[in-house]
């Protein structure tokens, strides 16, 4: 994403915001509709966007790079609506393979990756229990 500053008045049109962030105008509208971005600063004629939109889009891109979907990042970006979610936490699942072995696995991996991991864990659990 380009880091060019907003205009002297700090106001951007939707086309400017799209140009500066590398997103399409349609994608930005979708983010607003999904509650990931605030709406324009002014409604109607002369709708404008500013630094907070640039910052929020930067954050969305960062979270996407970490592997989160829009649905998963929505609670983080909406902040105060979800008190029980720790900011910046990544969900993990713990698997107890034997009484003395617990393995933590990231819960947001792709389903096929999850299945692979579970298969390997099953094999490991079987080996651990055989060699007790």
């Amino acid at each position: 994403m380009a880091d060019s500053p907003t205009s002297a008045s700090g106001e951007l049109t939707l086309a400017d915001l799209a140009g500066q962030t590398g997103l399409s105008a349609r994608t930005i509208r979708y983010y607003i509709s999904e509650g990931l971005l605030p709406g324009p600063a002014k409604a109607g004629r002369g709708a404008t966007y500013g630094e907070q939109h640039l910052r929020a889009i930067r954050e969305i891109k960062d979270l996407q790079a970490q592997g989160l979907t829009l649905a998963e990042m929505r609670p983080r970006l909406m902040g105060d609506e979800l008190e029980d979610v720790t900011i910046n936490s990544v969900p993990w699942q713990a698997y107890q393979l034997s009484p003395d072995v617990v393995v933590n696995v990231r819960a947001d991996a792709a389903p096929w990756r999850q299945k692979q991991i579970r298969r390997l864990l099953s094999e490991l659990a079987s080996t651990l229990n055989k060699n007790k």
Binding site: S89, P91, W92, Q93, R118, R119, S122, A125
Partner: peptide, 14 residues
């Protein structure tokens, strides 16, 4: 899947 069951959701950072 199979007999391997997750215990719980955890966050190693916290």
């Amino acid at each position: 899947s199979g007999r391997i069951k997750p215990l719980r959701m955890v966050n190693p950072q916290f």
